[in-house]
Design a protein around this nucleic acid. Structure first.
Length: 435
RNA sequence: GGAGGGGUGGCCGAGUGGUCGAAGGCGGCGGCUUGCUAAGCCGUAGCCCUGGGGAAACCGGGGCCGAGGGUUCGAAUCCCUCCCCCUCCGCCA
């Protein structure tokens, strides 16, 4: 959510129109919002004036009653009654306007940072840097779904049976490798990057998702549990953004760095027919998230650091990747600036997004009412940042596809071996043990 | 799931319809005073919305006693719904 003060002067309105245009959205809504806000404030003023009078009369009544002047009191009561009736209808109208404004305002996306490349969609994204060389093979590399089945570590059939398409069962050393990845990520971020580990609730209320920016905009993406009116989180970001909701933090507390492993749940409602093979796009996946609360003036340097923290993981694993700055047309709803990290998947000869690192500036903080009290006593919104560090399925994919051998076996990266009892290689012969 | 008890300012806590600025204490901040690991005295105070052409300062109005409605001339105080916490019972990983 943006500062509504933007609507009150021509400069702010122009910024807003420009922001929407850069994102490829219709700037015309700004005029409606300006008008709605004007009406809203006019009504607030009217209601407040009436209340001022009623408060005055009310005080007089109390005084008159206390001094036994009942007849005069009766007169004032009649007056107050009349004020009350007028107030009632005005207040109802005011509520309607507030709600209408709020509803529309919650759907306005963040303003892209000035450094974000302008363009209509992902084709305008800019590759910032590439790390490593795309892996080459002297044989035709297999895609991960073939490797997974061959190694007996990914079982798409059983997942389809129990849950439908876009689910996956990890089995044997596959399940072990998944767990190793999660633990490796968390260990690096907590031990070396200074993040505090969190394991948050995975079912959250609507208001939590409004605060994180996922609702009301992305309702179709969300799994909802009607019996208790709770939602499965689409990312740990949704939970972590609520860690300090309705709080005023002390300046010295910032920045706060959190990391959390959680499963994530997405309906992928708009992705019919896209990435259906394998586990590139699944309804349930694991992710280790990074999240920061920072002072406004520090958020962009913290964004670069967070990006480095995520890149570190791929470097340690030895997986080639590139960093992409998203263009205005590809930017997420809540983000002011986003870098994606894309790992090379040679089995499919494509780049796969394994991490998305964003600065939402005050967009989430305003929704969550997370503020900071400066040394001089002033209060303002903090900035929040989020990033994947990393999402496992696609990292798992990149690992299999990059380190595969002609016989279908896969070399396990050094850094993961301690988590795999020293195992160096997954081999097709390694049949899963019955449990 | 059943029964009961609660949610008041950073914290503790009083307050059951009227003089509004929510008692008091702790803690915070400012000041004064006394030199003795600190005490005493005085003062001050939050957040949100909104107005005074914009910004800062400043000044004003409204709102905030878990949330939202309602009753009433007037609600922290009465009623309803929801949320949260606690205790006991039941069930359960």
């Amino acid at each position: 959510m943006l500062d509504r003060a933007l609507l009150r002067d021509p400069d702010g309105q122009a910024r807003l129109r420009d922001a929407l245009a850069r994102r490829g959205e219709d700037p015309a809504v700004v005029d409606q919002l300006v008008e709605l806000d004007r009406e809203r404030r006019a009504l607030i003023r009217e209601v407040d004036e009436l209340r001022t009078r009623r408060n005055q009369v009310s005080r007089e009544i109390a005084g008159l009653k206390a001094s036994g002047k009942h007849e005069e009191a009766e007169q004032r009561i009649a007056e107050s009654q009349e004020l009350g009736e007028r107030l009632k209808s005005l207040e109802a109208r005011r509520r309607e306007l507030e709600e209408a404004f709020e509803k529309a305002w919650l759907l306005i996306p963040n303003i892209p940072h000035e450094t974000v490349p302008v363009g209509p969609d992902e084709t305008a994204n800019v590759v910032v840097r590439t790390w490593g060389e795309p892996t080459t093979f002297d044989f035709e590399p297999r895609p991960h779904w073939e490797l997974g089945e061959l190694l007996g570590i990914l079982d798409f059939d059983s997942a389809r049976n129990m849950s439908g398409s876009r689910f996956v069962t990890y089995r044997g050393l596959g399940a072990r490798l998944e767990r190793a990845l999660i633990q490796f990520f968390l260990d690096v971020h907590t031990r070396e990057h200074g993040y505090t580990e969190i394991f948050p609730p995975i079912l959250v209320r609507e208001e939590a998702l409004v605060a994180s920016g996922h609702l009301p905009k992305f309702r179709e993406e969300m799994y909802h549990m009607p019996a208790d009116d709770l939602y499965l989180i689409p990312t740990a970001e949704a939970s972590l953004a609520n860690l300090h909701r309705d709080q005023i933090l002390d300046e010295q507390q910032l920045p706060l760095h959190y990391t959390a492993y959680t499963p994530c749940f997405r309906r992928e409602a708009g992705a019919y027919g896209k990435d259906v093979r394998g586990m590139i796009r699944v309804h349930q996946f694991n992710k280790v998230e990074l999240f920061k609360f920072t002072l406004p003036e520090q958020s962009y340097e913290e964004l670069e650091r967070m990006l480095q923290h995520a890149e570190t993981i791929l470097q340690r694993l030895g997986i080639p990747y590139r960093v992409v700055a998203l263009s205005t047309g590809d930017l997420g709803f809540a983000a002011a600036k986003t870098y994606d990290i894309e790992a090379w998947a040679p089995g499919q000869k494509r780049w796969l997004e394994v991490s998305s690192v964003s600065n939402t500036e005050a967009f989430q903080a305003r929704r969550a009412r997370t503020r900071v009290r400066r040394a001089d006593g002033t209060v303002e919104y903090v900035h929040t940042l989020n990033g994947s560090g990393l999402a496992t399925p696609r990292t798992f994919i990149a690992l299999l596809e990059n380190f595969q051998q002609p016989d279908g076996s896969v070399i396990i990266p050094d850094v993961l071996r301690p988590y795999m009892d020293g195992l160096e290689r997954l081999t097709p012969e390694a049949k899963p043990t019955r449990s």
